[in-house]
Deep mutational scan, measured.
Amino acid sequence: MSIQHFRVALIPFFAAFCLPVFAHPETLVKVKDAEDQLGARVGYIELDLNSGKILESFRPEERFPMMSTFKVLLCGAVLSRVDAGQEQLGRRIHYSQNDLVEYSPVTEKHLTDGMTVRELCSAAITMSDNTAANLLLTTIGGPKELTAFLHNMGDHVTRLDRWEPELNEAIPNDERDTTMPAAMATTLRKLLTGELLTLASRQQLIDWMEADKVAGPLLRSALPAGWFIADKSGAGERGSRGIIAALGPDGKPSRIVVIYTTGSQATMDERNRQIAEIGASLIKHW
């Protein structure tokens, strides 16, 4: 067993022997301040990774656009098919120029040779490549099948209805392509620590998230040296922004954090800054 596999296998073990965790309302004060600064709703939840206990939450059962955070769930569904012998990570998928959609920095470079399922998941999570996500959605049967996968996990809230990039439209009061912070946090925890996926697939999923290259201005910008984070960000229309993450000190994750916002007129930089400040408060009061 590799060191990384050992780390993920012992996530519940280490967490069980940690000192009790206590909620700190100071972080919620910052979440509410972010709402004021952005002029928009902000949803927040913080779960203990081992027990699933909610440590703090704000608007945990209000719907927010998922945006690209759905790509972690998508690759979880792909990995479940791999575990069941219905898919192979090494299978190569070929596609054409007509398949390319807006923001496809990886797939646009491989029109000639195609990409493997493993490479597509890596591109979808680490670079948020939209064509990679659409190609992977095709392998599982489309958005409705991802929703069905989530329902089978016990998540009857999260739903995907459309493809990239239309799913980022974020129309107010439109339930399409949305989740709730509580539902997303619980589902992410199941994917990373539950028995739904094999140990190898859980490790692969967290490795992809740990290698995320496009979430630097968010929670990662607030992390002290030595902290662990595996995350996936999302951005959408109407001032929408979000991030889902597993993080913790001492090089291992111990909490799940989900943050979503929508309806702001603020710039992307300002949305990023507010999420980073929430992260800084979380870490300060850990």
Rank of each mutant, 00 (worst) to 15 (best):
M180K: 05
D212N: 15
I243T: 13
H24K: 09
E270G: 15
A225Q: 14
G43H: 05
D250L: 12
H285E: 10
T187K: 00
E145I: 04
N168W: 09
A34N: 12
R92L: 13
N173W: 10
T262S: 08
V214M: 15
V72D: 03
I206D: 07
L111P: 02
K144M: 05
G43P: 09
L219W: 15
N173E: 09
W227I: 07
Q86L: 13
E62D: 09
D155H: 03
K32R: 09
D155P: 07
L282N: 05
G154N: 04
L47P: 01
I275F: 15
W286K: 08
R176Y: 03
S51A: 06
I275H: 10
V29R: 02
L188G: 14
E102T: 01
I45S: 10
D269H: 10
E145N: 12
S51N: 09
D48C: 08
N173F: 06
V214C: 15
A280D: 07
I275S: 10
I278T: 13
T138F: 08
E46R: 04
I278R: 12
M153G: 04
E102N: 02
E87W: 05
F149H: 02
D231L: 14
P249F: 10
G39D: 11
S254R: 07
G52N: 14
A245M: 12
G76E: 13
A230F: 11
R189I: 14
G114F: 11
T147Q: 03
M67G: 15
G251I: 08
E46Q: 10
A246R: 11
T187I: 04
E46W: 06
L150Y: 14
A123G: 04
K71F: 15
A185D: 12
P60H: 10
S240P: 09
A148I: 00
V214W: 15
D231T: 15
W208E: 09
L137I: 06
E108S: 09
E102M: 00
E102W: 00
Q88I: 11
G251E: 08
A84M: 06
A200M: 10
K284N: 10
S240Y: 15
V29K: 13
S128P: 06
R59G: 04
I171T: 00
E26S: 09
A211Y: 13
K284E: 03
T147E: 04
T138K: 15
P181L: 01
H156R: 09
I206S: 08
A222G: 15
T267Q: 10
E26Q: 09
N98F: 12
L79N: 00
E35R: 06
W163L: 14
H94Q: 05
S122V: 12
M115I: 11
R273N: 11
P25K: 06
K32P: 08
D207T: 04
G76L: 06
L146H: 01
E56V: 06
A235W: 14
G90F: 07
S68E: 15
E210F: 09
A280I: 04
S57D: 00
I256F: 12
S281A: 07
H285M: 04
L47V: 04
E270H: 15
V101Y: 11
D161P: 03
N152G: 11
D113L: 04
A34H: 09
L218A: 14
K284Q: 03
P60D: 08
Y260R: 13
R189M: 07
R91T: 08
C75I: 11
R159Q: 10
A215D: 14
G226R: 12
I244F: 12
A245V: 11
A222K: 15
P60W: 04
F149C: 01
A246T: 09
I259D: 12
L73N: 01
H151V: 06
E87Q: 06
D99K: 06
S51L: 02
I45N: 03
F58I: 04
F58Q: 05
F70S: 09
G263S: 01
A185S: 09
D231K: 13
G242E: 13
T107H: 06
S96K: 08
T131P: 05
P172A: 04
S281Y: 02
P25F: 02
V31R: 09
Q88T: 09
I125T: 07
D83M: 12
K30P: 15
A84L: 04
G114L: 10
I206H: 09
M66F: 01
I259Y: 05
E277F: 06
P60E: 04
L218I: 13
E169H: 00
D207I: 06
L219P: 13
Y95V: 10
S51M: 09
F64D: 05
S96P: 04
G226C: 09
S80F: 13
I93R: 00
V106F: 09
S128Q: 13
K109D: 03
P224T: 08
T107R: 02
I278D: 09
T267A: 10
D161C: 01
L120K: 10
T198N: 03
V82E: 01
G239I: 14
K284W: 03
P65D: 04
L247K: 12
R59Y: 04
L136Y: 05
D33H: 08
A225G: 08
D129F: 02
E166D: 07
E277A: 11
Q97S: 04
G52W: 04
M66V: 10
M209T: 11
T186D: 12
N134P: 04
R63E: 05
S51V: 02
S254L: 07
L218Q: 15
V258K: 01
D48H: 12
D155M: 14
L160W: 06
A211G: 08
T112K: 03
M209Y: 05
E119M: 06
G43W: 03
L49K: 01
A34I: 09
Q86E: 12
I229L: 15
S96V: 04
G251W: 10
Q88P: 04
L74Y: 02
T187F: 00
